[in-house]
Write a protein that binds this DNA or RNA. Structure first.
Length: 435
RNA sequence: GGAAGCGUGGCCGAGUGGUUGAAGGCGCACGACUCGAAAUCGUGUAUGCAGAAAUGUAUCGGAGGUUCGAAUCCUCUCGCUUCCGCCA
């Protein structure tokens, strides 16, 4: 949610945000409601003042209240309730309109009304070359009996899978590699230095196993509940399965006040995420590219407004570092206004080269929310000066395990249907050369 | 599933109708003492909204009600805790 005073004073920016993200919000109506609300509130406060004065007078006179004063009190009460009813009538419309305004994109976010307008910012590495015809991950995994979707279909339905055998070991190896790396201060420092993020804190991440469900209220405050058709609701409860650890990590400190000295707070969450994938019927049906359930390592951080943009770049740097550690060819995508989310001020994707599909596919996202989420979550920081202000939030994928394993299988496959193990993962797989 | 209890400031914790935005403590900030620190003492220390400010107003989980007046009484609701049962 944006601040109403910001909207009032930066109307052009907000109009741009609405248009460039293809939202529809009646800003004039919002401002009109805001004015009406303000004037009603002022009238109400004046009445409250006279009510309080009247009560104080009765109190001052002690046990014997003057009937005249009681009469005045009753009159004030009646008027007050009239105005309060009026206010209550416009309040929901006002709040809904205010909530529907998307965050304003940063200046360097390309304008675009479809994902085709995303920009390729950089290409790192070359598409992997083979002296044989490479298979896609599912062909290879089927030969090796690593993925069983038939039985999953029987038990659970489409877009589910049993992951088996060496693929399970590979997933565990990746998880351990990432957790070991990002909780190690020297690794963090190294990333900050090599990507020239001078001045940024080298505080390591705290690993977290979060709950996988969250309340409607929290999901909504994160502004990630919509579209609900893509979420799973628990029947008979005000609970939803999270679609990303961001949802449960970002809401973790709702209503709290951080001390500036404790920021940034960096979490590395590992969680199984759930998505209905509404509107993607028939898309990516082969293999495990797009599933209702997938495991993910996710970064989330809380920082001050001065450091949050750099923190966002730091998250992107970590993503690059991780992909480079795995020696995977990838490209960096600067997402356009349409493609970054409603709460996002900026968004960067990583796409890894998939030989089996002969194209780059999204494996990572980094979202920069400024104070948009924390305003509704009411997550604040007490600055060293004593001032209170909203914190800024960032989130980004470390690895979506399914897709990164697809990338490893396809890029590291051999002619005899084996998968070479990326060097950094070998220590986590008994120093074997291949799976 | 059964029963009971509890939701008050950054934290703990008083407060059952009238200067209570709220005692006391912890924490924190500043000052005194000290060569310095600890300890001790003193002072200060909630947030939102409106306002240049003075100040006003609201907020004691949330919503509604009673009353001239509600943290305090009533109703509903949400959340949490404990005990018993069941299960891992």
């Amino acid at each position: 949610m944006l601040d109403i005073n910001f909207i009032r004073t930066h109307k052009a920016d907000v109009e741009y945000a609405i248009k460039s993200k293809a939202y529809k919000v009646d800003l004039d109506e919002l401002l009109r409601l805001s004015d009406e609300r303000k004037s009603l509130t002022q009238q109400i406060e004046q009445l409250q003042q006279s009510r309080n004065a009247n009560s104080a007078e009765i109190k001052r006179l002690g046990g014997k209240p003057d009937p005249k004063l009681i009469e005045t009190g009753k009159k004030i009460k009646a008027e007050l309730s009239k105005l309060e009813d009026k206010l209550a009538k416009i309040e929901p419309a006002y709040i809904n309109l205010l909530k529907s305004v998307p965050n304003v994109p940063e200046k360097d976010v390309p304008y675009g009304l479809s994902e085709d307008e995303n920009e390729v910012a950089e290409i790192i590495g070359e598409p992997t070359k083979f002296d044989f015809t490479p298979k896609n991950h599912y062909e290879l995994a089927s030969i090796r009996d690593w993925i069983d979707k038939e039985r999953a279909a029987k038990v659970t339905g489409a877009r589910f899978a049993y992951i088996k055998g060496d693929l399970v070991k590979l997933q565990m190896a990746i998880i351990n590699f990432v957790i070991n790396s990002l909780t190690d201060q020297s690794v963090i420092k190294n990333i900050i230095d090599s990507y020239k993020l001078d001045g940024l804190s080298d505080k390591p991440f705290t690993p977290v196993l979060p709950p996988l469900m969250l309340r409607t209220e929290m999901y909504d405050a994160m502004d990630r509940l919509e579209p609900r058709e893509d979420r799973y609701k628990i029947e008979g409860e005000e609970l939803w399965l999270q679609g990303s650890a961001e949802h449960v990590l970002g809401s973790m400190h709702a209503g709290e006040i951080f001390e500036e000295a404790n920021l940034p707070i960096r979490y590395l969450g590992y969680a199984t995420s759930f998505r209905q994938e509404a509107g993607t019927y028939g898309k990516d049906m082969e293999g495990i590219i797009r599933m209702h359930q997938f495991d993910k390592l996710e970064m989330e951080s809380f920082s001050t407004k001065e450091t949050s943009r750099k923190e966002h770049e730091f998250f992107v740097a970590i993503q690059r570092w991780l992909l480079e550690q795995l020696e995977l060819p990838y490209r960096v995508i600067r997402k356009c206004t349409f493609d970054i989310g409603k709460p996002d001020a900026r968004g960067i994707d990583m796409e890894v080269w998939l030989p089996g599909q002969n194209k780059y596919r999204e494996t990572h996202t980094a979202d920069y929310m400024t104070d948009y989420q924390s305003r509704r979550l009411n997550t604040r920081v007490r600055r060293n000066s004593g001032e209170l202000e909203l914190v800024h939030t960032n989130d980004a994928t470390a690895f979506a395990l399914g897709r990164i394993m697809v990338a490893i299988i396809e890029n590291y496959q051999t002619a005899d249907n084996k998968v070479k193990i990326p060097t950094v993962l070998k220590p986590y797989l008994n120093n074997k050369e291949e799976l």
